[in-house]
Computed example of a mutant assay.
Amino acid sequence: MTDSVKPRAARAADKRRRLTAAAAQVLHEQGVERTTLADIARVADVPVGNVYYYFKTKDELVRAALSEHSAHLDEITAALDELPDPLERLKTLVEGWVGQRETAARYGCPTGTLAAELDKRADGTLDAEAGAVIRRLLDWAGHQFRVLNLPDPDGLALTLVSGYQGMSLLANALRDPEVMTREGARLLGWLDSLRAAPSA
């Protein structure tokens, strides 16, 4: 490979990465139907004509955004896995959700809102791909409860993630970030009570 090709390949990879990150951001803020390829190009600082070189359709950009959500989730859970105690991992996750309360109040959960919007479309499987990202979070949380040796770990994971989705939705609907603060505190108390409760 010549030196002139290497920078070109690096520039192309950087453009694709910027477009993927911009797609995740803009689709979260505006939704699929209101977002144009030009919107994403503008946020990525890429000429709109170049977008078609990397992504032929808006659905391809939606798929890229979902991939970005999945990668971001992997980064979060990898960092949480560095904590020695599974309960602390779960509590730190909840604290992170609460830390994003202003964004949640304005736009909702990035993956949850996208999954809900995609579910209303009759022209593809992207809703299932959005659900797969949420499933990854459920599986990770279920594993934490399993390590804690708690009964029904998958049910507990569903309660936790449902709590997050519910508080994100309500914070967004009511435009009230303090919904996240209050419900986050309730989830933290619930997690503490699980450790305190005698195991079945």
Rank of each mutant, 00 (worst) to 15 (best):
L187T: 01
P177A: 09
A104R: 02
T35K: 09
V43G: 13
R34D: 15
S199R: 14
W140T: 03
V147H: 00
N149I: 00
A21V: 04
K15G: 03
E88V: 01
G131S: 03
T181D: 12
A105F: 07
E183A: 11
A185M: 04
G189V: 11
M180P: 01
V133H: 01
S4I: 14
V133W: 02
E29H: 08
T36H: 13
A173P: 15
Y107L: 04
K91G: 00
A105Q: 09
L138H: 09
A78R: 15
A10V: 11
R121T: 03
F145E: 11
L150A: 10
A9V: 13
T113M: 15
T20Y: 07
G31M: 07
V32K: 08
K91E: 05
P7D: 08
N149M: 04
A78F: 01
W97P: 02
L156C: 06
L160E: 12
A64K: 13
K58V: 07
D139F: 01
A115Y: 09
G131Y: 11
G166L: 07
D45H: 10
L187P: 08
T103K: 12
N50L: 12
L188Q: 06
G142P: 13
L114N: 03
R11V: 03
A10N: 12
T36Y: 07
D14N: 08
G189H: 12
R16T: 05
L83V: 08
V179P: 05
A171H: 08
A173I: 11
R136Y: 01
R101Y: 00
Q25C: 12
G155E: 10
K91A: 04
T77Q: 02
L158K: 05
L137R: 01
R89M: 03
L156M: 08
R136T: 09
L118I: 12
A122Q: 11
N172R: 15
G49Y: 12
S168L: 10
A79D: 12
W140V: 00
D85H: 02
A132H: 10
G131K: 13
D14L: 15
D74V: 00
H143C: 00
F55R: 07
V32T: 12
V5R: 11
A22W: 09
H72G: 09
P153S: 06
K91Y: 00
V5Q: 15
R63I: 07
D154A: 14
E29T: 07
A141M: 03
L160P: 06
L138R: 12
G155F: 11
T125G: 15
R8D: 07
L150W: 02
G131V: 00
D119I: 04
I40V: 15
V51C: 00
R146F: 01
D154R: 05
D152Y: 11
A196D: 14
G124I: 02
V94M: 11
V26Q: 07
M180H: 06
E75I: 05
E129N: 00
L158I: 08
